[in-house]
Design a protein around this nucleic acid. Structure first.
Lengths: 113, 113
DNA sequence: AGCTTCCTCAACCAGATGGTTGACAACGCC
DNA sequence: GGCGTTGTCAACCATCTGGTTGAGGAAGCT
């Protein structure tokens, strides 16, 4: 489902190492080895992280001989932001209605006195 | 750190049930019982979900006798969207630079022929 | 063909996660 | 005081997760 995809995107970004990888890829494509270099963990661990990002649709990988260059698919971000914006807007609307109500009560009180 | 907080927010929203709870709370505050009613799971499980959301700063709880009304803290969304926007923008800039480069190459080719 | 480089797959391990049930604290209502 | 309602805490369980090591596939280099 679409639900599943959203869950995978959020879960993928819940890990600091993976967010870091995304940040690096936003500057340009990179191979697994290049991405793994700055971290204390093994290359295999980074490869796993990339698989998670790939399953979430955030990263795609092509071939270049033994190399597997990684590319950020930034459009997937929209899935998240549209979800977030929807409920943020809803909450905000509710607040403004509450403000209206309070304003109306103030008015009534003012008229009564 | 701030990193940790961001991780907790993303992790909290990685679960469909918790996203659903957030969606319901965007329409108005609710008690644990009210939130648990639509689901097949136990009240305890929902209480755990709320604890995760609370630890992430997405939900706050007050007291009303035995009741514990839950309230959505929508400002926390900004933490996420600002992170996302930052790297989306970075990736987009990179693309536009690439476009510039390709345009420049086209020009050169045009001038050479 | 043989060696090295780059990367993935498989098995394993410790700790987190999402669910359960049972006990119990806090409060309103008789 | 006793009872039902509301919610949390604790213990337990199965599964997922992030890490490890070891083996091996794929491709370039000599």
């Amino acid at each position: 489902m679409e639900d599943d995809r959203l869950s995978r995107v959020f879960a993928a970004l819940a890990d600091p190492t993976r967010r870091d990888i995304v940040a690096r890829l936003s500057l340009g494509d990179a191979t697994v080895g290049q991405l793994a270099a700055p971290y204390a963990v093994s290359v295999q661990a980074v490869s796993k992280h990339l698989k998670v990002l790939e399953d979430a649709g955030l990263v795609s990988r092509s071939r270049d001989a033994q190399r597997r260059p990684c590319h950020l698919e930034a459009e997937v971000f929209d899935l998240m932001t549209s979800w977030v914006d929807r409920y943020r807007r809803q909450a905000q609307e509710r607040y403004s209605r509450l403000d209206d109500l309070l304003a109306a009560m103030d008015n009534e009180e003012g008229a009564a006195s």
